[in-house]
Design a protein around this nucleic acid. Structure first.
Lengths: 204, 204
DNA sequence: GTCTATAAAATGATAGAC
DNA sequence: GTCTATCATTTTATAGAC
């Protein structure tokens, strides 16, 4: 839905718009975001912004679909042939936590969309996401059946990994308020805690 | 900020407005919500709605502050003198999951506010919430020091309980999309899963 | 208390000059 | 490609009749 960037300046402006839109949509959701805010953040006028994208909705869709692939890559990479299934799952947790740390706006963009009932991503969730999770749930179930990890509900295990890692991005302001100003970066401690949690849950 | 309800009809309308506002704010966040939507949902005209509350902001503040108390009650109730600390913490998890099941709109209202950086609740988080968590974290630390629960970072333990239980309310549409139409109610399975998870994490 | 009418500002989007 | 000017709607809020 966005014009394919051809010149260098188009490339640069398209990226600036998408970056600004990520800022605004991730904080305020689709309806709470305004083109004015996005244009100002991107350093462009509103009509110029609408020269690159035909509508507010088009920007939102461009962001969501560009993100979906990257967001699910760590789960796709979960290796059914892994020598150590517990370590493989701990690695997945670590990668997801790193994504929360390094891409908090992307996490909040998704969170906003899901909170609102997934009006735009609904179909993608029911097909692509549900299919991938079903696939990996079978892998996890196999590991449990072979006694290589402790028995556990595979889909709820995946939910718990998402919930725990994304919490540090989505609820960042609450986490920092609770930890107080003495502890500026919660991620190192979170990494240790989550490693402990999933080790105790999964190790035989 | 809301007029104290005196007559029966004022009582009824105030409640209808707050209930409708909870619907709309919890889905769309503060800026994404409109008075039109709230008024229509409440079955009132827009000017009539503004007879009861002076502004959109006043409705939002009324909801948030009325909710804060109820929301934290289970954590306040965590008993330092409990005979069985693991069971006490599992009971807290169960109560929080029941709140997600029975009050999903309230959970999403908070989630939206935190996602947006807690513009209205920020001070309450830094004082009331941070104080309560610090208090209960000392209790949990004491239990661990006495060897009555496994050693664990107390504040991240609390974060993980919030993240895991609220996930089922806040990300309901994703959970249902992933589980598919065959499993209409995820809560019974979630209760079993979370009980297992925290037992393995905390039991000695 | 509730309504119609309306003001005042904001917001998404377009026209057209340069 | 980018801008100023502007339009059409939506949105928050008020005025004033009943």
């Amino acid at each position: 839905m966005s014009p394919r960037p051809r010149t260098r300046i188009q490339q640069k402006n398209s990226e600036a718009i998408l970056d600004a839109a990520l800022d605004v949509f991730s904080r305020h959701g689709f309806r709470g975001a305004t083109l004015d805010q996005i244009a100002t953040t991107a350093g462009l006028s509103k009509p110029n912004l609408l020269y690159y994208f035909p509508s507010k909705k088009a920007i939102h869709v461009a962001l969501l679909s560009a993100l979906m692939d990257n967001w699910l890559q760590p789960l796709r990479d979960l290796d059914p042939e892994a020598a150590d299934p517990v370590a493989e799952l701990l690695g997945y947790v670590r990668r997801k936590l790193e994504m929360s740390r390094d891409m908090p706006r992307e996490s909040r963009l998704f969170a906003n969309e899901i909170l609102q009932g997934a009006p735009r991503m609904g179909p993608a969730l029911e097909s692509e996401l549900a299919g991938l999770v079903a696939d990996k749930a079978r892998v996890i179930e196999g590991w449990a059946a072979e006694g290589r990890i402790a028995p556990v509900h595979p889909k709820h295990l995946i939910f718990s990994i998402w919930a725990l890692t994304q919490h540090y991005a989505d609820f960042d302001s609450q986490v920092r308020a609770v930890l107080g100003p003495g502890e500026p970066d919660p991620y190192p401690e979170a990494a240790v805690y989550l490693d402990t949690l999933f080790t105790r849950l999964l190790a035989r």
